[in-house]
Design a binder for these strands. Structure first.
Length: 444
DNA sequence: GAGTCCCGCCATGGG
DNA sequence: CCCATGGCGGGACTC
């Protein structure tokens, strides 16, 4: 018997088959979102998951129960629907398309938009309701973003519904603390600094991904050795905690790649329960979406097994031998072929294959983040730790990017793509000119 | 078919 | 009791 979830098996739950009082506030907005889907013939989710789902009251019932008992279908259909979520990033005119697209709803994209909304001068606090309404999503999604951002120090809880905005500049310190904590605990057991567990040939590690960790390191001992936070009660199972633990895996080990499967096993505690693993994996995807949208990590695949894995980008700028590692491991970076956790800004109206050479190097950074770089919290997210050894490195890198961007303009035959690219180039140019004028230290 | 991850139900805990 | 929070897993979507 499930203790939670959607199975209806109690008086209380039956009663709540209407609309729970505590959820009524969100119901109206949910209806608006549903009708966005409803209006789009492409989507199947309303009919299948929202109407046929036995756990969700039928549409008419929901309307009757929750929308002041007065709204009919016609009224709701004609309600002023807020501008489509994510219009910030898609650059779609708010009034343009009501097309529902899964990609446009991704957590990564939401995170980008969240950052672009708040990463600016003068922002001191973030209200969850405000964020939800401005981003056009339900509060539930904001919690997901906020939990992850809190783990990396961007936000600090102030009161209910309110967070202090610490900004991207707080990330290096937060990561350092996580790293110290992980290494401190690590001293007692496995010597991670020497890389006993991780330094093995990546190929070998990936060659048997299904058993890689059990053979090379017991997930339980790995869990202890990194001082990962225990997840025993509800609070301690939070997404934030999982994020911290996930980050520690990268921060405290010499390897910068980790398979999804291994991550789930290490972070899990009990690696023997498949359904628990599946749940955990879902959460890892959630976290990875947010972290990848901030360019902390990227998604990769084993070339043969195609098993998913993550690669840490945070320290990459310090690690000049990274490219050699790539050739050594033979890992594929499918970013150019496949959407990366929904962080792709493209919407489905434009089938947009990225031009890896330019977008990956520079333009993609600013656009993908959608961050306005005019604030005081400027930070190169390619190096979230901020541990850049040469102060001019940043500027030099920017110059490299600029020259690359200027010399490798792709020739798009599609007008839409051309326009899009021009837009990205403009964004990049303006960002670059700002950075170039900045104090190099401030830039870090 | 496996991988990905959106969505929202509903349990929990604080006020 | 109300409300904020967020764990959790169904199932749609994507490759």
């Amino acid at each position: 018997m499930k203790s939670r979830g959607k199975t209806v098996h109690s008086k209380e739950q039956l009663k709540s088959k209407g609309v729970p009082a505590c959820n009524q506030k969100q119901t109206l907005h949910r209806l608006q979102l549903n009708f966005q889907k409803f209006q789009n013939p492409k989507t199947k989710s309303l009919s299948k998951s929202n109407i046929l789902n036995p756990h969700i009251p039928s549409l008419s019932t929901t309307l009757h129960l929750s929308v002041s008992h007065t709204l009919d279908l016609h009224t709701v259909r004609n309600m002023a629907i807020p501008s489509p979520s994510y219009s910030l990033a898609t650059k779609e005119p708010a009034s343009g398309s009501t097309t529902y697209c899964r990609k446009q709803k991704s957590l990564g994209l939401l995170c980008s938009n969240f950052l672009s909304l708040y990463n600016r001068d003068g922002v001191e606090t973030v209200g969850l309701d405000d964020a939800a309404s401005r981003l056009g999503v339900e509060r539930r999604r904001i919690y997901d973003i906020v939990n992850v951002l809190e783990s990396v120090g961007v936000l600090v809880r102030k009161a209910k519904n309110t967070y202090y905005w610490k900004g991207l500049g707080a990330i290096p310190k937060a990561l350092e603390e996580l790293k110290e904590e992980g290494l401190r605990n690590n001293d007692e057991s496995v010597d991670c600094k020497s890389g006993k567990v991780w330094e093995d040939d990546e190929d070998e590690r990936f060659s048997n991904s299904s058993a890689s960790f059990q053979e090379k390191a017991d997930p339980d001992s790995m869990h202890k050795s990194l001082g990962l936070f225990k997840s025993e009660n509800r609070k301690e199972k939070s997404l934030g905690l999982l994020t911290k633990n996930f980050l520690k895996l990268f921060l405290c080990t010499p390897s910068d790649t980790l398979s999804l499967e291994d991550a789930a096993k290490i972070l899990l505690g009990d690696a023997r329960n498949p359904s628990l693993t599946r749940t955990k994996v879902r959460r890892l995807y959630d976290i990875a979406n947010v972290l990848s949208s901030m360019n902390f990590i990227e998604k990769i695949h084993h070339p043969e097994t195609r098993k998913p894995a993550f690669r840490w980008l945070g320290m990459r700028s310090q690690n000049q031998s990274q490219s050699q590692t790539d050739s050594k491991t033979g890992l594929v970076h499918p970013e150019s072929k496949k959407r990366a956790f929904g962080t792709d800004l493209t919407n489905t109206n434009i089938s947009f294959k990225r031009n890896k050479m330019v977008l990956d190097v520079g333009v993609d950074q600013s656009v993908k983040l959608g961050v306005s770089h005019s604030g005081s919290d400027r930070l190169d997210l390619k190096d979230p730790t901020g541990l850049v050894d040469g102060e001019s490195k940043e500027v030099k890198k920017s110059q490299d990017w600029e020259s690359l961007a200027s010399t490798h303009r792709p020739q798009y035959h599609n007008q839409a793509l051309r326009d899009l690219f021009v837009h990205y180039m403009d964004a990049w140019s303006s960002w670059y000119s700002e950075v170039a004028e900045m104090d190099p230290i401030e830039a870090v």
